[in-house]
């Protein structure tokens, strides 16, 4: 399956990645190859087979509704690129 430049552009926008012209070309080739390889799966007949969502067969791994330990406020903000005493700060988002 051929991944053209328009698709690369769209995917890179969605993933917030930037490429120069040459890298985009290489990326397009690589992704096409990867998809070609994965497309071998199409050779298998999957009619009447439920989609597999997890590798484990475990179900109902749930928690009781009990409030537990919190991350200390300072620790929570520790890795923020920008912060103040209370909040994470990010470049202004305009709707």
């Amino acid at each position: 399956m051929r991944i053209d430049k328009t698709t690369i552009k769209k995917i890179s926008h969605l993933a917030r990645l930037e490429f120069d012209e040459n890298s985009a070309e290489k990326m397009s080739r690589d992704m096409s190859q990867i998809l070609d390889w994965v497309e071998q799966l199409n050779e298998i007949n999957t009619d009447n087979i439920e989609p597999l969502t997890t590798m484990s067969s475990e179900v109902n791994d749930m928690r009781e509704d009990v409030s537990g330990t919190h991350l200390n406020h300072e620790a929570a903000l520790k890795n923020a690129p920008k912060r103040d005493a209370e909040y994470f700060r990010v470049p202004k988002v305009l709707e």
Binding site: R63, V66, S67, G68, H70, L71, A76, Y87
Partner: peptide, 24 residues
């Protein structure tokens, strides 16, 4: 109106000091 969050055990009360009801 649960005591804790959907997928984690931090409390989900309204009106607490910012970034105090959080977990990893």
């Amino acid at each position: 109106l649960t005591n804790s969050k959907m997928f984690a055990s931090d409390a989900s009360d309204y009106g607490r000091a910012p970034n105090t009801q959080v977990s990893v």
